[in-house]
Write a protein that binds this DNA or RNA. Structure first.
Length: 646
RNA sequence: GCCCAUAUAGCUCAGUCGGUAGAGCACUCCCUUGGUAAGGGAGAGGUCACCGGUUCGAAUCCGGUUAUGGGCUCCA
């Protein structure tokens, strides 16, 4: 006689055991039709899950985020079913839900082709139209292993073999296709209406490069066709913001075959680069950092002492001269310790904050390169803070404040924070790692920031906090970081004299706010869709003459503004004003100053914005004040480039 | 590094069965001297990524290399 409690607190009594779907039917036929699954006593279950005893039940439909996830998960199964029908000898492995969709990994004797993808998708639609019921079956572990072995599905058998012996194993059956799965799933394949296979990729079995490579098929799935269409359109829009495309169009940088992963910065891109450095310098000055500069090329002996040769050499470019071997620096830290080591340090000198716009080279795997986001030569806004153990918390806290101040100036409010803990390849004792990880976690908690663990992903010398931002396609890139290092100062002989006149080893904090200037600029381009706030725009205003008669006046105006410190150009070409406006709007110049006969006569500027707003006439001084206050706003209150979509 | 795909004019892209390459924009010149997102005309521009093979003949077919794109692994 189960009594079912619903989320609104109401209760319904049933004479006999009742399924989630039957509960929904009791409430209303509309809800029953929309039911995808249920949440019974806090646990997600299938719609046909039967409750024998009293329970708290929530009906899951496609309006719930869980509902959408279930749709995506069921789509992954539909994909596997289609592949097994078209390619019976393919073996199934795993098929999880990911952001916006799902994927499924298969082992098959030949690569899938784009044509196969089309055929698979067509088969999926066919199967969905059949509206096959999806049934849950429960088996003992050994029985399940035997079942998949007999099917020749060795990957599935391997997965189950790792599940505890006494655990109950659930299988899901749709048509003739049976897959191992925790569930829940939608009640029948006809509930899958809006999906699309998007890409084909390789992926290692269990994510381990030592294992064979499987073929991964990605797809996206939504509750209805409209959402799918919206998503696909949004992706298309996002691709237009790709920093690699905008980088070329706005003449910011280029890459070429002879220097893979190493950008050639053009004048406009370099302007942004310099502005970022100037901005960070201001912040460093305010926060008592000392800027230094160290060599690019340093004898390998130093890298052996620091541990880089052992743990990082696969990423290092080496060079030699006169029987000496050198490394092109991949990091600045050992060099900063050398500066620290010059002269005896007292506890009174700590914390000592050494900053450098350190240009580093890392021999990244060719397949890892990605525009400005992952390069082989980069400049970090790097600094190393030498301090005592007691000062760590305060320094980390001080840094987090700085980072948030800076990110706010760029208009970022969505920052993902992760605490990366000890990796398998590391230096230093477990005791030291415990201490360092605790210090970082405590600092984050004291700021009441929400963060997650990124276990096993710390640097080889210490744990780190990663501050990540998203690109236009929502890919996440680590930018800021702070890392505690109890090892390197000791390895490189850094010491100070403490209050009791004893020699002690300082702790070193590695930290960067922007991360690499390259990556940060890549993120900025995509965030602003190329429409940089006036603060960062390579050209802040352009003066356009309507006819050749205004050429001199236009040039005088441009010159005057330049002398006031603005980045201003003039366009005196023998072209129509419409064309000039279009050209500079496409170049995303914030302001266009139009000078025709009327403006010359009245000694005013006709100003319009790159978004197409006509600001009317104003004096040069008024314009200058306006631009000045725009610049002072930095990147706060920008609209993410949304207004500049055309 | 691994898997799949791609590489044609400065850019974006066509190019069918293997028969010596085409458009739009950009560029140069000429006309036009204009009023808020493309005024008109003409011209120039390519060892079809690179190396090799098949063929009477290769942008096209085959092999290799490099780079790029999407993933995996890795990472700022």
């Amino acid at each position: 006689m189960p009594v079912i409690t619903l989320p609104d607190g109401s209760q319904r009594a049933f004479a006999k055991p009742v399924s989630v779907l039957e509960v929904a039917r009791e409430i209303g036929p509309g809800l029953a039709k929309a039911t995808l699954a249920g949440e019974v006593n806090g646990k997600l279950v299938d719609a046909n899950c039967v409750m024998i005893e009293n329970a708290t039940v929530r009906i899951i439909t496609d309006k719930d985020s869980e509902g959408l996830e279930i749709i995506r998960h069921s789509c992954a199964h539909l994909l596997a079913q289609a592949v097994k029908i078209l390619f019976p000898s393919a073996q199934v492995t795993i098929g999880p839900v990911v952001e916006n969709g799902f994927y499924y990994d298969f082992a098959y004797e030949r690569p899938f082709t784009p044509d196969d993808l089309t055929a698979i998708e067509a088969k999926m639609f066919e199967l969905a139209a059949l509206d096959q019921p999806i049934e849950r079956l429960v088996r003992g572990r050994n029985e399940a292993v035997a079942f998949f072995r007999q099917l020749g599905e060795r990957y599935k058998a391997e997965i189950i073999a790792d599940i505890p012996a006494d655990a109950e194993i659930s299988l899901y059956k749709q048509g003739d296709f049976i897959d191992l799965c925790r569930g829940p799933h939608v009640p029948s394949t006809g509930r899958l209406l809006a999906f699309k296979l998007t890409k084909l990729a390789g992926a290692y079995w269990r994510g381990d490069p030592a294992n064979e490579m499987l073929q991964r098929i990605y797809g996206t799935a939504w509750a209805d066709k409209k959402s799918l269409k919206t998503y696909l359109q949004r992706q298309e829009e996002a691709e237009k913001r790709d920093h690699r495309k905008l980088g070329r169009r706005l003449e910011l940088f280029h890459f070429q075959e002879e220097a893979p992963g190493m950008p050639f910065w053009h004048a406009h891109g370099w302007t942004i680069y310099r502005l970022l450095m100037d901005y960070i310098r201001e912040k460093l000055r305010d926060r008592a950092y000392l800027e230094v500069h160290t060599p690019q090329v340093i004898d390998r002996i130093l890298w052996e002492k620091s541990g880089h040769m052992e743990k990082f050499s696969h990423d290092m470019f080496m060079t030699s001269s006169e029987n000496r071997e050198y490394a092109i620096k991949p990091m600045n830290c050992p060099a900063h310790v050398q500066i620290y080591n010059q002269g005896l340090k007292s506890y009174r000198d700590l914390p000592l904050r050494l900053a450098e716009f350190g240009c580093c080279h890392r021999n990244e795997q060719s397949g890892a390169l990605h525009g400005l986001m992952r390069v082989r030569t980069m400049t970090q806004d790097d600094a190393h803070i030498f301090c005592t153990e007691d000062q760590i918390q305060a320094e980390v806290s001080h840094f987090i404040d700085l980072l948030y101040e800076v990110y706010a100036d760029f208009g970022f409010n969505e920052v993902q924070i992760r605490l990366a803990t000890r990796p398998p390849q590391r230096v230093g004792s477990d005791e030291v790692w415990d201490k360092a990880e605790t210090a970082l976690a405590t600092a984050l908690n004291e700021k009441h920031l929400s963060w997650t663990f990124n276990r096993g992903e710390g640097a080889f010398y210490g744990p780190k906090i990663e501050f990540s931002l998203k690109d236009s396609l929502e890919r996440i890139w680590q930018c800021g970081t702070i890392q505690v290092d109890f090892s390197m100062p000791g390895r490189l002989g850094a010491t100070y004299i403490n209050e009791r006149s004893e020699k002690a080893v300082p702790v070193m904090l590695h930290r960067a706010v922007l991360g690499s200037l390259e990556r940060f600029i890549g993120i900025l381009i995509e965030e602003y869709a190329g429409a940089f706030p006036a603060w960062l725009a390579p050209v802040q205003a352009v003066v356009l003459s309507i006819t050749e008669k205004q050429a001199t006046s236009a040039e005088i105006i441009a010159k005057t503004l330049k002398n006031q410190g603005f980045r201003v150009e003039s366009d005196l070409r023998n072209e129509t004003i419409s064309l000039k406006i279009r050209d500079h709007a496409m170049q995303r110049v914030p302001y266009q100053i139009i000078i025709g006969a009327r403006e010359v006569e009245n000694n005013v500027l006709a100003v319009r914005t790159r978004a197409g707003d006509d600001l009317g006439n104003m004096t040069l001084d008024t314009f200058s004040d306006r631009l000045k206050s725009d610049i002072a706003c930095r990147g706060r209150n920008v609209f993410g480039g949304k207004e500049y979509s055309r």
